[in-house]
């Protein structure tokens, strides 16, 4: 595995490098990139290292009326340690907490998790359930917003253009009338750490004081070519009272979630298993 590496220290230098380099990849925490290059060496490659770029909007976190914005370089560890995120978006906290191991979480970034566009990306799954927006910055210093539902275009494919870098992710604020939301991340695998999701389910269900569901986001991981938002399952929940969901409704909900799944059989699990389990854990949200 051999490559050239350049280390821009500012956004300006970064965009300059993007403009100049013909054959390059970004490296953030490099926890995916190095594995990929090891499997498939890429001759003449230049890695543009994002880790030295000093820019708060790229590395930090900021709260506004609209929601919470994380820079693309925000790490899984930082997500885990952030109290505001833990309180407001438990699904995101859980997903980051379940990612890999303590060591990997120190360097793995939210931007890397999205841009690698793995169907089993855990943080990606949570952000889909949260209906986040991706902020893409191009070499002319212009940004465009892409909703996460259209960010993933296929297995390991995204809406990023060759002259763009993912700059930040904004999670819309919770509905102002909500209280005690139901939010969590269910990861299924064999080990308790260093495990890649065999199936995952992210849910962020916002309820009002009476427990009536106002907004819902439910996403599935490792069950389709990309992480997917189970929109019809989300709609199905609106207006229902969380605690009064009947057995029949639970099953209907789980069926709707399952309709978004088209899993594969691989070394880690069969498609049959993935569907069976996805159905069960969908129901389990209400148990």
């Amino acid at each position: 595995m051999e490559f050239n590496i350049i280390n821009p220290v500012s956004v300006k230098e970064l965009l300059g490098a993007v403009k100049k380099e013909k054959h390059f990849r970004f490296g953030a925490g490099c926890t995916d990139l190095l594995m990929e290059l090891r499997k498939k060496p890429d001759e003449g490659l230049t890695v543009i290292n994002l880790a030295q770029v000093k820019d708060n909007s790229f590395t930090g976190i900021k709260k506004s009326a609209k929601g919470i914005r994380m820079g693309a370089m925000f790490t899984a560890h930082q997500i885990v340690m952030n109290e505001e995120l833990k309180k407001t978006f438990p699904v995101l906290h859980d997903s980051a907490h379940n990612l890999a191991s303590t060591q990997i979480r120190q360097v793995a970034t939210v931007g890397g998790n999205l841009c690698t566009a793995s169907p089993s990306g855990d943080i990606a799954c949570a952000l889909v359930a949260l209906r986040a927006d991706c902020e893409l910055l191009n070499t002319t210093q212009k940004t465009r917003m892409v909703n996460i539902s259209t960010f993933f275009t296929g297995v390991r494919q995204t809406a990023l253009k060759p002259n763009e870098v993912l700059y930040g992710i904004t999670i819309p604020a919770n509905h102002k009338n909500t209280k005690n939301n139901y939010s969590g991340f269910i990861k299924v695998g064999t080990r308790r750490s260093m495990e890649c999701s065999v199936v995952s389910l992210a849910y962020h269900i916002q309820v009002n004081v009476e427990g009536k569901i106002l907004k819902a986001g439910v996403a599935i991981g490792a069950s389709a070519p990309t992480v997917r938002l189970a929109e019809s399952a989300c709609k199905f929940l609106i207006g229902k009272t969380f605690k009064n969901i009947t057995q029949k409704e639970k099953e209907e909900f789980a069926d709707k979630v399952l309709s978004y799944a088209s899993p594969i059989t691989d070394i880690r699990a069969t498609a049959w298993y993935r569907k069976e389990v996805l159905y069960n854990i969908s129901k389990s949200i209400f148990e």
Partner: peptide, 16 residues
């Protein structure tokens, strides 16, 4: 051998 790596050869970790 289909799983010649720690990713798919599931040796348990301290967390387990």
């Amino acid at each position: 051998i289909l799983n010649p790596n720690f990713h798919n050869y599931k040796m348990l970790t301290a967390a387990d």
